[in-house]
């Protein structure tokens, strides 16, 4: 058990170092998020937008940023042909855990960029941060969990880029729906109790998909 966790941390650190050595991919993902956010802000202009639309727009930006970035971690292993080495060296579960951790942290890091810019660009006021932050965090964990396992699938196909969003969206709909609902409540200043059921859905979705991923990852990874 402990060696398993330690190996996953090792894989995570390997990926972390690799990504920071060639900062190209990380920069591209960050810029993509900023650009899609400014595209929305730019097209809205000086209009005052109501919370329901604001929270939907925020999650559209987060979803597409995730779609631009989260597949890279598996696709890179296949493109640089390091995947087979990993297959030989470690158990599948540790690979999944490492990559999952990386994706969760990557998406949260993206949000540290997106959310303040979102608040500034779209002139948001009256947020209840105590509600908003848990919704964002749980939403991102759920979104990156489902993205990670789909990324593992599409890394082994041709035509990777287009497939990722197509495969993820239908499965991510419950996440997006509850996250939009939750951050809507937060943007209107509602407390944690007002969106507890959204948080419950996000949490149980993450747990179910995480368990299913661990069970199914063997079949994707082994050839």
């Amino acid at each position: 058990m402990w060696t398993l966790l330690r190996n996953s941390i090792l894989i995570f650190r390997k990926d972390f170092r690799l990504e920071f050595r060639s900062r190209f991919a990380l920069n591209a993902i960050g810029l993509f998020a900023v650009i899609s956010l400014s595209a929305i802000s730019f097209s809205i202009g000086a209009l005052r937008v109501k919370p329901p639309i604001l929270s939907a727009l925020l999650w559209v930006v987060i979803f597409f940023s995730a779609m631009s970035g989260l597949a890279h971690i598996f696709v890179r292993e296949e493109e640089q042909q390091t995947a087979d080495t990993l297959r030989l060296l470690t158990q599948p579960v540790t690979v999944f855990l490492g990559k999952w951790l990386f994706n969760v942290i990557l998406l949260l890091a993206l949000e540290i960029v997106i959310v303040p810019l979102f608040v500034i660009f779209l002139d948001v006021s009256g947020i209840n941060w105590g509600t908003f932050i848990p919704v964002i965090i749980l939403g991102s964990v759920a979104l990156s969990t489902i993205s990670t396992i789909i990324a593992a699938i599409i890394a082994q196909t041709s035509n990777r880029g287009a497939l990722f969003a197509v495969l993820t969206f239908p499965l991510a709909v419950p996440v997006l729906r509850s996250a939009i609902q939750g951050s809507w409540t937060a943007l209107e200043g509602g407390g944690l109790t007002a969106c507890i059921s959204d948080l419950q859905i996000l949490f149980s979705f993450s747990v179910v998909i995480f368990t299913a991923s661990i069970l199914l990852f063997d079949f994707i990874w082994r050839r």
Binding site: I149, P174, R177, I201, V208, F219
Partner: peptide, 25 residues
């Protein structure tokens, strides 16, 4: 066959959430 089966099962795992989430909204 392998990847399609995995995807189909993942989709199967999310359907209960759809059933639960959508009518609430």
């Amino acid at each position: 066959a392998r990847l399609a089966a995995v995807y189909s099962l993942l989709a199967f795992a999310t359907v209960p959430f759809l059933v639960f989430v959508i009518p609430r909204i």
